[in-house]
């Protein structure tokens, strides 16, 4: 084996890696927040809204879930200027990730809402609450608890999938890695480090979500003495 690993050349660029990783975190963090908001609204539209709205949101969900993120990124990147919207590559990437996660989150959250027995809803009605109050105070937390593992997994997938937005040079970690690879020609070293950074970020995100789960679902700690870290 004649190959000599040269990590030092690559590690000399550690500042740029960290910058890229920071942007990856920012991009996916924003996508997670906005995507979840879309998910909640989408799920409400599908469960509470009129039929035509259910249909429109359903079509959005199906289109997004049955086409690759890569193609969605390209479509937004090339499609938005056509309708006169100006943006940077990073903004297009954020938009694509948000729209993508929004579709998955809609379905996950809807499944959670539908998993709550209808009798809970009736109990709320009988106590003179409005539909919105019932959703907020009665349905939301138990539904969130049910879907928390699935939602967390989807968040992690979004973090990892953000590498795909490098196809429009979004300046996040993978874009940075590709630039450094082009400068140093140390492909293996560059992508090994990049992969390790992604793994670290993914594990970090999962740990944070697990901790958040412990805070959010206090009842589980009280009622069941042994707490399984909420598997994500």
């Amino acid at each position: 084996m004649s190959y000599r690993f040269q990590f030092d050349v690559v590690l000399a660029q550690s500042d740029r890696f960290i910058e890229g990783a920071a942007l990856t975190l920012q991009l996916s963090g924003e996508a997670i927040v906005f995507g979840t908001v879309i998910g909640i609204l989408g799920a409400l539209a599908r469960t509470e809204g009129p039929r035509w709205l259910d249909w429109i949101v359903g079509a959005y969900v199906e289109v997004i879930r049955n086409t690759p993120l890569l193609v969605q990124v390209f479509l937004l990147f090339f499609g938005l200027p056509a309708v006169g919207v100006k943006f940077t590559a990073t903004e297009a990437a954020l938009f694509a990730l948000t729209v993508n996660l929004g579709a998955y989150a809609t379905e996950i959250i809807r499944a959670g809402i539908e998993a709550i027995p209808h009798t809970q809803f009736e109990a709320g009605l009988s106590l003179s609450l409005t539909r919105l109050q019932i959703f907020r105070h009665i349905i939301f937390m138990p539904a969130l608890e049910i879907i928390y593992p699935a939602l967390g997994a989807q968040f992690t997938l979004t973090l990892l999938a953000s590498s795909i937005v490098s196809v429009v040079a979004a300046n996040e970690l993978t874009t940075v890695a590709q630039i450094i690879e082009g400068e140093t020609f140390r492909s293996i070293e560059v992508y090994t480090i990049t992969t390790l950074l992604y793994i670290a970020m993914a594990l970090g995100l999962r740990s944070i979500l697990a901790l958040l789960g412990l805070v959010l679902f206090r009842r589980r700690r009280v009622v069941q003495p042994q707490v399984r870290m909420s598997g994500i």
């Binding site: 084996m1 004649s2 190959y3 992690t156 990892l160 999938a161 953000s162 590498s163 795909i164 490098s166 993978t174 492909s187 293996i188 992508y191 090994t192 990049t194 992969t195 992604y198 793994i199 993914a202 594990l203 999962r206």
Partner: peptide, 23 residues
């Protein structure tokens, strides 16, 4: 755990460039 914490694109890069170690 490792693979599910890695972007699919990185797996593709590593497999594509990895054998270069052996020429």
């Amino acid at each position: 755990e490792l693979i599910q914490s890695t972007p699919v694109l990185m797996v593709v890069f590593l497999v594509y460039f990895g054998p270069g170690i052996f020429g």
